[in-house]
Nucleic acid binder design. Structure first.
Lengths: 194, 194
DNA sequence: GTCTATATTGCGATAGAC
DNA sequence: GTCTATCGCAATATAGAC
């Protein structure tokens, strides 16, 4: 119980600190102290600071595997889109640090962008694009719709709601109790417009 | 001509490097070398690395003043929204580094977030929110619309298109020639839905 | 104004004791 | 496996020459 695995402790602390201040904003000295572990344990378990960062990144992005389940559901396109929005919001709740790594890697890519981040985003977006295409083929959506731009628009709406939290929390309630309302609202915009 | 002001040269180099690698990802050694200026000039003109960063941040966010012009236009709400989307896209074109500072400050705020970034975003979003409210009052938009969420959704769509560039440029053409089409597409989603 | 040289601090990594 | 002590280097800032 009390005897927490040091490797796990380092991962948890690194996730929080790297998310809050970025790879270069944290020293392994501070990180190991915060984790209550000797600094040499980072090299021992992760082969240095960058290795620790790569492990955190891999762990954080692994939850995107869920997109395969959405893809293979036997439901209509519009329902799949609602399922995507619902999952995406829940993902932000379950992995509160993921968005930091996501945007940080998109704007200031590290050497791990190409191997970890890019393939994950690529795959998730293509599943979303295919859902829109399916909706157009089935005549559920307008045929003038650009599937790629539409998929980006949907992902952008949800992600930006969370990205903007720090700047908007004074006048927009971001609590999870409102998530259901948010999903309905986004779906309404997509089905009815303004 | 050739005799470029050192202060200006430092600002330009710092804008690019801070945007690409973040405040902690760049050393003033490298920065001053890249600018072709002595390292001591940074303290002389900007009172250190952080002062230089603050100057860059202020300059980058000053373009948001344009939101006041949109606010005061004598046009209908929907037209103002189109004007916002058009301006927002053009802003990304004119200030290609702004989004990096924007997202970096939202996810890993520096000490300048509260004084420079937060007030700017706050003001711009409130103008957008008021436009949506005006549309609801005039019965141009559905009255169930949540103005705050709707404003965030609009801002998020456009910003995410640019944020995702690095991960999507292989299958989505992000060139400025397509900007007109993008604006029409976003407006269509808002007026007609999917 | 602009430079070089340097003071001081903190970094990441690791050798070696236990 | 875990720690302490230390190495070598790079960071920011600045004093002082020009």
């Amino acid at each position: 119980m009390d005897k927490k695995d040091f490797k796990t402790k380092l991962m948890a602390t690194a996730t929080r600190l790297f998310a809050e201040r970025g790879l270069h904003g944290v020293s392994i000295r501070e990180l190991s102290t915060a984790a209550g572990v000797s600094i040499s344990m980072i090299s021992y378990y992760f082969e240095g600071k960058e290795g620790l960062y790569a492990s955190v990144l891999t762990e954080q992005f692994s939850c995107f595997e869920y997109m395969d389940l959405i893809k293979n559901k036997e439901t209509e396109p519009l329902e799949k889109i609602e399922e995507y929005i619902r999952w995406s919001i829940q993902r932000h709740r379950d992995y509160p640090y993921l968005l930091r790594f996501y945007t940080s890697e998109l704007t200031n890519p590290t050497r791990y962008f190409g191997s970890i981040v890019q393939p994950t985003i690529d795959k998730a977006l293509h599943i979303l694009i295919d859902i829109v295409k399916e909706g157009i083929n089935k005549k559920h959506f307008r045929e003038e719709l650009n599937p790629e731009d539409t998929a980006l628009a949907m992902a952008g709406m949800v992600n930006y709601y969370f990205l903007s939290t720090l700047a908007t929390e004074k006048f927009i309630n971001h609590s999870p109790e409102r998530d259901g309302e948010l999903i309905r609202h986004y779906m309404d915009i997509f089905t009815k417009g303004l």
